[in-house]
Structures are given as C-alpha cells and as structure tokens.
Computed example of a mutant assay.
Amino acid sequence: MKSLIALYRQAVRNMWPALIPGLPAFGDKLTPAKLDSTDRRDSISEARHILWMLDVMEATVDTYAGHPIAKALAAGKLNRWLGFVQGYLWRADVYSLDELRDQTRKALNE
C-alpha cells in the first residue's frame, strides 16, 4: 500500500507543481486535460484534498502495522480512500483503468 501511496502522491504533484512549496505558480499549460472545473482554485482544492488523503492513508498504514485487528479494521477505510484517489487520477487522465488495476494488484502482492 505504501508504494501506491508514494506513486499517487508523486502523480498529483506532477500534475500540480504549484502545490509544492518553493515552486512558481503554474500556467494554463499545466492544467490536467480532463479536470473540467471552470475555476482553477477548485481543481487545486481537489488536488490538495487528495494529497491530504494520501498523507492520512500513509499514517494509517504506519500506525496499524503491528496491530493485526486494527489493521484489518483500517483496511476497509484504506480501500475506500484508495478507490477515491484512483478515481481522481483516472478522471484526470493520469492513469488508465488497466494501469490502476495492475498497480493495485502489484501492491497487494507486496
């Protein structure tokens, strides 16, 4: 799961370099193709929310690593959030459904 979190965090940051402190603001050419928001701030808010979700997911994986019962309970939430993040990345045309499926299968077999 941690490898997927890192992969998806980097994908979002690649889409929106302005979210990384110290980089200049982005121009229209960096707007992802399928993000159909008419207000750029909405798209940035979405990306920030996805990054926050990924941070919480990573903290959850770290917190429950040594607790099998808690880990099982947290797995349901992590899977729902993973699906939400993957939906965002698919809608933004970052990954195809086949790529997302293959990434998930690989991560589950780690």
Rank of each mutant, 00 (worst) to 15 (best):
D102F: 01
L30S: 12
L78Y: 10
W16Y: 11
M15A: 14
A25M: 13
R91S: 14
Q10H: 08
S43R: 08
D55K: 01
Q86V: 02
P17K: 09
D39V: 11
L89M: 04
M53D: 14
A72Y: 06
F26K: 05
Q10R: 13
E58L: 08
K106N: 12
R105S: 02
V56G: 04
F84P: 02
V94S: 05
P17G: 00
A6P: 02
P68F: 07
T38G: 15
N79R: 14
L23K: 09
A74S: 11
S96T: 15
A74K: 08
P17V: 07
Y64L: 00
S96H: 04
R41P: 00
G76L: 04
I20R: 10
D42V: 13
K34D: 15
L89P: 03
K29D: 11
G87R: 06
A25Q: 13
D39F: 05
R101Q: 11
Y8P: 04
R101W: 02
L54P: 03
L4K: 06
P21T: 05
T38W: 12
S96P: 01
T104N: 13
N14Y: 02
I44Y: 07
Q86F: 02
L23P: 02
L54G: 03
L51Y: 05
L54T: 07
D93V: 03
I69E: 10
V61E: 07
R91F: 10
T60F: 05
M57R: 01
Y95H: 10
D62A: 07
L30M: 15
V94R: 03
R105D: 07
W16K: 04
L54C: 08
P24D: 09
W90A: 15
E58D: 13
I50M: 07
D42M: 11
R80F: 14
D93I: 00
M53V: 15
P32Q: 02
G66R: 00
L19K: 00
I44L: 15
S96M: 05
Q86S: 06
